[in-house]
Amino acid sequence: MDTNAAPIIEAKGLTKHFRRPVKEPGLKGAVRHLFRPAYADVVAVEGVNLSILPGESVAYVGPNGAGKSTTVKLLTGILVPTSGRVTVNGLTPFENRVENARRIGVVFGQRTQLWWDIPVGESFRLLGDIYELPDETYRASFGELIDVLDLEPLLRVPARQLSLGQRMRCDLAASLLHRPPILYLDEPTIGLDVSVKARFREFIRYMHRERGLTVMLTSHDLGDIEELCDRMVMIDNGRIVYDGALSEVTTRFGWERAVHLTLTEPDESALEAASRALGNRPGAVATQPEPTMVAVTFDSRETTAGELIRDLATALAVTDIRIEEPTAESIIRRLYEGDLVFEQAE
């Protein structure tokens, strides 16, 4: 990766508000809306700054409704931003939608871009025409993709008869046929089984490493993110809350830890004793998942594991102690589940 290169995707202060009509239910509401329409302003994306270099692979993550899809739509030119700038391949996508479209590939996980009723091979040919690929380019590109994705046996099958996994392979080929430098993947592995997922990831890694493809991936699948991306951007409530290496997310957000204590014997009163011992420790909460086990979660910014263990070791008969470090995975999972609140990144 050339770190001196100009970014291939760049967004500055990218903002998108939607105006949603507010209608009261029923006919009366509909009629009233006709004469005195009321709208609510919904913030989808607010002041997003993003700079992606050629050849990077970036995971774009966040809970449902956080603004992931909206950002992708802004970057691909499907939506026009309310304010802010966006440049992709040196073009402003919504102003040069057609030119931009030639230089990007997009995979929407749940929707296919193949023609439903016609054989896959014909779909590819049509796409070659749509992207106005010269014969030579088409043949070379087609040949490579067929080879790598092993599509030969599927070419005569209409898309509607493909399994989900087969369709995903075909869709990948369809999105890369015109050799775009950028590939957007929007929830690409939804519904795929484990082996198909592995194959999908292997292919993306190949294109990324061997062909220098810039990849931007939105996914709920932590495996996708871990295996495919060097960098992770997290969005919550329309704002970017984290932008950095996947491995570093723990140092930034991993303040929530746990201590697991194994007791010498089953003890009914252990939880009470532990709670009493922790009385003055802010943010520390004890639970007793098993009769011989007490777990304490705490905030590492306020308390240290050492202090906790000291308190607990005197109150309980402990045989073993295990300190649980948060993994990136658990942090992202909790982000998705909405029970971890992020401060905004500076």
Partner: peptide, 13 residues
């Protein structure tokens, strides 16, 4: 269905 999105990321009207 939102499939109209797809038409907007292709270089044809």
């Amino acid at each position: 269905s939102g499939e109209f999105d797809r038409l907007l990321v292709r270089p044809v009207s």
